[in-house]
Structure formats: structure tokens, C-alpha cells
Design a protein around this nucleic acid. Structure first.
Lengths: 213, 213
DNA sequence: CCAAAAGTGTTGACTGTACACCCATGT
DNA sequence: ACATGGGTGTACAGTCAACACTTTTGG
């Protein structure tokens, strides 16, 4: 029985997943989701938090159970049940281990994933579907953005996840009408264009809404 | 490691769940979801199908994995992980074992559930939430209705699950526009009012839609 | 001055909702 | 005759989608 975690972040306008490179057989050298066996007396949720800390160096992020996989043949070594979670991490918070060896975690854009071990390609595809749906009726995006952000950043986050372009005025109108975010008196800095006003999420806790996308 | 199944059906205009009465400690005499340990080499999905057959006498119904529960303290005997499924069964297909002893399965309306063992009250509440959401963007209702049904029956099914009254004309307009169901040349029989025209689902396979409730 | 994103409203199409009456049948 | 659901359309309100130009800043 194992726990695997799909860790998402946004970087360079792309939705990315954290993967490690396997240092053992089977699938030696292929890429895989971070995960592993449960420690003695540990719940699967606690194990997912531990993996997040170990591989991405973060805590207090959005995390949710995804699905439990136990199809025959998913692990050549025999029947293995895997409880999977997915997490959303702001890019600025990720701390990747620097060691240049196998098992070193790195971020890969969804559009160009390397060869994946086990059924992990399927797990990631399923996680993306769930993430897209989730974004349409929750405030989960707060966990992919820094504390203060511009409407443009927010829109780019939605575009990266949904894989579509959105209309600027319509997006802003709709999102502001949800009353999930509030204007702050901060301004963007260091950009080479007109500085944007920064917003914050009113609540940093997950909440459900009536569907808005 | 166990598998538990939330088996839903509609009976007398009410959404009901199949429960057994426990014949062993702990929670002796309380009601519980049908479930049990995995057989040697069995997947959780296969176990859920087996339980459906054993307790409700049905196969080929809508079934889907719900969630995996492993909170500390959910079973007083120690850490137990339970992979749960939910199933939708047409009332006409259910065959309950008739034996009048403990473990005998019976249907209970959601509004008046008996005292439940373990965390099963929470599991059922979660299953209902998922079922309501599911009904809003899939054709899952096909698995709660007989092959031929009237629009009124369909509407009552939605009302029982959603727990709300719906407007007849608007419901029919919306549902027909989805092109999920087709008119047949059959008519209702044996009712004491004007016979209704019967419809059928065009596809008996689960499919997703763009959200309609 | 140029590049890049900021900021800002209106219109037309579509969708959802509210609502009431006569009809066909079995008892 | 009466009770029960069968069957049918319209009008108003709200939401969604398309669309373009001026402003501010850094380089």
C-alpha cells in the first residue's frame, strides 16, 4: 500500500508537475510521481503531507485526495494499492532538493512529460481533469498564487490550467462579481510596463461556490 | 483494508440506502453499510461488485469509487482503511435476502436513518453530496430508472435526490433539449390517470455533459 | 518613442424562471 | 363526477460572449 502525490504549480505560464527519477527497478531511470509506503501508524493524508514537505519543501498548501488505484498489473511486482492526492503549490514556495542525482525532484510542463513509470501518466491525466473541474467551482486558485497578485496573473493561472485563452474584460467582470478577492493598496513592482493593482484572496481556506466556469 | 458500498435506490419517492444490521462487535446491532475485507487477489472494484451481488442481488449497475477513508479512530479495533464505492440501482432490480436475521439488508430513507456504526453516517452524507453533483453533469439517472419511464418519473427521481421541487414545464424543456432520452411508442399502463408516454435513455453508458443543473 | 500590459462599457444572444389551463383516463 | 397527473407556451430577467481604444510605465 502506497501513497503518491501529484504536485502542481504554475511556472512560466505553464502548468507543471513535480516528478522524480526512479533510482530502483522496476522502471529504473523513468520518471514517477513522488510517493512511497506508509510509515507505521501513519494515515494516508499525513503521508501525503510528509511527501510534500520532503520533495517540494512546502506545507499549508491546498491538498485533496484524488483517487485510489489498484488495477491489476499496475505494478509488475504484484498487487499494489495506491491512494493518490493532489496538491497546488505557489511557485515561489517550492524548494527543490538541489542534489544532482536520481530521485532529484524537478518540475515538468504537462505538455511535454517524460516517460512515466507505472500508471502514473494516467494518474496525472486524471488529476488534471479534477483540477480543471475544481477550479470552476472553488477558490482553489488561491493556492497557486502568491499572497498578492494582479488580475492578469490570476487570468494567466486560469488559462494555464484550462488550456484556453480568456477574454480580459469578461474574466475580470466575472471574477470580481464572485467577491472572492479584494483590492489592496499594493502595486506591482519591477515590471517594465504600467504597474498593476494587486489583489488578495479574502479567504485562504478552501470554499465551494455555485460554479462559475 | 476493507471495501464498503453505498447502494442508492429510489422507492416511494424517497432516496434510500441499503444497510445491514451488524451481527458482531463492535457496534453490535447498529446499522452499517454492506462491506467487508478483500478476498485474496481481488481488486477493490471487484469486491464492490461482489458485495452488490451478494446484498442487493444486482449487477450491471452504475458504480463508482467514492473516497478512501482512513482517519485515525474510525474503527475502535485499530487502523482500518476503507475504500468506498457508491452504486445506483433501479428499485425493480433489487433482490433483498429474505432471512429475518441480523445482516439482513434493508432499505432506509435518507431522511430517517437508524443509528450507524463506525463513520458510516459521514460516508453516506458524502456519497449524497457526490450523487447530487453527479446528477448535474452526467446521465447517471439512467441507472435509477427502469428501461422505460415517463417524464414525471424522471422528474420525481431528480426531486428525490436533490431534495427540491422542480417546475414541470421547465424540467421537461431542459431535459429534452439535452437529447439524452428519446420518446418510445410505449405508454404507461395500470395507472389510474391519463397514461403517460414513455421515454428511454439513448445511451445506457455513463457519459458526461456540460452541466445542466 | 516603443513595447507591454493596465484599465474600462455596451450590445445582442442566449438561458433560466415564473406561471395556468384544459385533457385523458380509471375509479 | 372526480381525482390524478399529462400535456403544452410565453414573457421577463439575468447571464454570457464579443468586441477596441486610451493610459501608464520602463527601457
Amino acid at each position: 500500500m502506497t501513497v503518491d502525490v501529484v504536485i502542481f504549480t504554475i511556472e512560466g505560464g505553464d502548468l507543471k508537475v513535480l516528478l522524480i527519477e526512479r533510482a530502483n527497478k522496476p522502471f529504473f531511470g523513468d520518471h514517477a510521481l513522488p510517493g512511497g509506503f506508509l510509515l507505521q501508524g501513519e494515515t494516508t493524508h499525513a503521508a501525503a503531507l510528509r511527501i510534500l514537505k520532503e520533495k517540494a519543501g512546502v506545507k499549508d498548501v491546498y491538498i485533496e485526495q484524488l483517487y485510489t488505484f489498484d488495477d491489476k498489473g499496475r505494478d509488475p511486482r504484484g498487487p499494489v494499492l495506491s491512494v493518490t492526492y493532489f496538491a497546488l503549490v505557489p511557485p515561489s514556495d517550492i524548494v527543490l532538493k538541489k542534489e544532482k542525482d536520481l530521485q532529484a525532484p524537478a518540475l515538468y510542463p504537462l505538455r511535454r512529460l517524460p516517460k512515466l513509470a507505472f500508471d502514473h501518466a494516467g494518474i496525472i491525466a486524471y488529476a488534471v481533469r479534477r483540477l480543471r473541474a475544481k477550479l470552476g467551482y472553488t477558490n482553489a486558485a488561491f493556492s497557486l498564487l502568491p499572497k498578492f497578485f494582479s488580475l492578469f496573473q490570476l487570468q494567466k493561472t486560469y488559462e494555464a490550467i484550462m488550456g484556453t485563452k480568456l477574454d480580459k474584460r469578461n474574466f475580470q467582470k466575472k471574477f470580481l462579481s464572485l467577491r472572492l478577492i479584494a483590492l489592496t493598496d499594493k502595486m506591482e513592482e519591477g515590471m517594465r510596463q504600467r504597474p498593476a493593482r494587486l489583489y488578495r484572496f479574502i479567504s485562504q481556506k478552501p470554499s465551494e461556490l455555485k460554479k462559475f466556469f
